[in-house]
Amino acid sequence: MLQIQNLHASVEGRSILKGVNLEVRAGEVHAIMGPNGAGKSTLAAILTGKEGYEVTEGEVLFEGQNLLDMAPEERSHAGIFLAFQYPVEIPGVSMIQFLRAALNAHRMAKGLEPLDSAELMSLLREKAALLKLEPDFLTRSVNEGFSGGERKRAEIFQMAILDPKLVIMDETDSGLDIDALKIVAEAVNALRTPQRAFVLITHYYRILQYIRPDVVHILMDGRIVRSGDASLAIELEEKGYDLLISQA
């Protein structure tokens, strides 16, 4: 589904990613772990087409298409979804208005008619219940005044609505208390299908207890330095990055 080959990227002339290779197949869950500043969010930004990042080498294919040539909205239509590490507040745009626009843009890209209001509302209510979000949350402005936990749940809620093929979660677990983490993990597990893949970016082993990864990668200084199965995350938890890498 996703193939990243020898990806090099820089920000403001500074080289951040230094040859990332990664292959993700449908149905898989990959965890990318690494210390602060390793380049995890940079990778997510490049996969979703954020401005300001320069790819200097390498390529990224998504279902055979050259992802780097596509606009952010086209990538979304193709099925890529990023749960942001820091979702931005958008005062004046209600959650309903936002999701209606997003969903209808997806439908239009598929050649479908826009949803009518009743269909939209029943979909939104169903998914909000899955994330245990209060009903009034739909009429509030996007992320405005949301607590840390609400913000992260709102991201997963959006994912549930847009039904993507590849989900990238950038530190969705950070700042969540254990109850919120369980809600998020349950929702993600409920959305695991043989057609859908997940890339979980995280610092901590904790979330991986609830969402079992098939593959764990360690990203340090712009490169994947080790990959392994779920036991690698446990080993990392016990030894820490430095020891783990020096032993490699």
Binding site: G49, P72, E73, S76, H77, F84, V88, A102
Partner: peptide, 13 residues
């Protein structure tokens, strides 16, 4: 730019 990117990343042209 952050706001614009957020909307586009959700598929809004």
């Amino acid at each position: 730019g952050e706001m614009l990117f957020y909307l586009r990343a959700r598929g809004i042209p």
